[in-house]
């Protein structure tokens, strides 16, 4: 169905799966890096600074 291994070894992945994975990744990055909740900010503070997110 959505998996197809071609002759050159590349694999075809359904677009839906790619979008799901990218969205989960973006959600993780948002929560850890950008969300302005006070608790999250305090907990992730040092990482946000070290990784170069805008903080404070």
């Amino acid at each position: 169905m959505s998996t197809l291994t071609r002759a050159d070894g590349t694999v075809s992945v359904s677009l839906a799966n790619i979008v799901i994975v990218a969205l989960v990744g973006a959600a993780l990055v948002f929560v850890a890096g950008l969300a302005q909740s006070e608790t999250l900010h305090d907990a992730a503070h040092d990482v946000r600074h070290a990784v170069g997110f805008p903080c404070h």
Binding site: R6, G9, T10, L15, V24, A26, F30, A32, D46
Partner: peptide
């Protein structure tokens, strides 16, 4: 907490990166 959030940030980046790699393979770029 820094270790935890560092893993979380890079897990997020890893997911986006692998999604992009899969997209490139879909377009025929191994």
């Amino acid at each position: 907490l820094s270790v935890l959030f560092s893993i979380m940030v890079y897990a997020g980046y890893g997911l986006i990166l692998v999604a992009a790699i899969a997209l490139a393979e879909n377009a025929g770029h191994r």
